[in-house]
Write a protein that binds this DNA or RNA. Structure first.
Lengths: 124, 124
DNA sequence: TTCAATGCAAAATTTTTGCACGCTA
DNA sequence: TAGCGTGCAAAAATTTTGCATTGAA
C-alpha cells in the first residue's frame, strides 16, 4: 500500500461515483507529482481486489465507487450526477428466471434529476 | 438514404449486436471505398432516429442492434458473444418503484456461455 | 447547380503500457 | 540491493470532427 494508493482510496471514500480523471485532479492538489497512469493502475488493482467497484458508464468515463457490492445507478442526463438506486435484486431475479450463474452485471438508468428538471422549466 | 447508409443497415439486420469496427470491415468487402467515419456518422444518425439501437458495453466497443426497443443483453466474458435476454420489464418495475420517469436504461449481464464453459472444462 | 453526405485525416477521449528511475523492505 | 511501484510519455482503442470533394436531385 503506497502513499498514492492510500490517497486514491481516500478520495473515493469521500467521493463515491467519481471518475479517474477527477480522482487524478483531486490527488494532484495533495500530491502534485502523482501521474494519471498511477491512478489508473491503482484503480485497476483495487477493483480487481474488490476494494472498490468500477462502474462503466455509457458515453463517458467509468466511475469508481466505495460500495463494492454490485448495485444499480441512476445518472442525470443533464448534469451527469450519479446516485445509487435502492436495492433491486435484479441479479437474483435474472439468475432464477434465466437459470444461469451471472458473474457480474451492470444496470444504469438515465433520467433527468429533479434539480435539472426544475432549472429547465425556468429556462423555457 | 445513401448507398452507404443502406449497406450499414443491411449489415446490422443480418448481424445484430455487431460493433462499428466489424460493420466497417463487412462494408469494406462490398464497398471498399467506405470510410470508418461514414459508418460512425450513419450509426449516430440511425440511432438518433430510432432505426437501430446502440448498446454500450463495459470495456469494449458499442454494439448496434436491429431491435430498437430497449431490451437487455447477456455477454459472454470469454468469447464476447452477445445475446438478447427475454423481456424483463425492469424499466416499468423501476419507474414504479422509484416513482420517476426513466428516459433510457441499460442492463448488461456478464456470464460464461455454455459453449465456453464446456471448453474451459476440457482445458482444465 | 446545389447541398447534403462522403472519404480522409486529424483530433478528442479514455485507458493501457513500456521504460527508466526511485523508494522501501 | 532487489524488486515493486512510480512518473512520464507514447500508444492503443474507440469515437468524433473539420474540410475539401463528390454525387444525386
Amino acid at each position: 500500500m503506497t502513499k498514492q494508493r492510500k490517497l486514491i482510496d481516500d478520495i473515493i471514500q469521500k467521493n463515491p461515483h467519481i471518475t479517474a480523471e477527477d480522482i487524478f485532479l483531486k490527488a494532484k492538489q495533495i500530491m502534485p507529482s502523482i501521474a494519471l497512469g498511477t491512478v489508473y493502475r491503482n484503480l485497476g488493482i483495487m477493483a480487481r481486489e474488490n476494494e472498490i467497484l468500477k462502474i462503466p458508464v455509457a458515453n463517458g468515463a467509468d466511475r469508481y465507487d466505495k460500495t463494492t457490492k454490485p448495485h444499480d445507478h441512476a445518472l442525470c442526463t443533464v448534469c451527469g450526477t450519479m446516485k445509487d438506486i435502492p436495492e433491486t435484486n435484479i441479479k437474483e431475479l435474472l439468475e432464477e428466471r434465466l437459470n444461469m450463474k451471472i458473474s457480474s452485471y451492470n444496470l444504469n438508468i438515465y433520467f433527468q434529476c429533479p434539480k435539472c428538471l426544475k432549472e429547465q422549466k425556468i429556462k423555457i
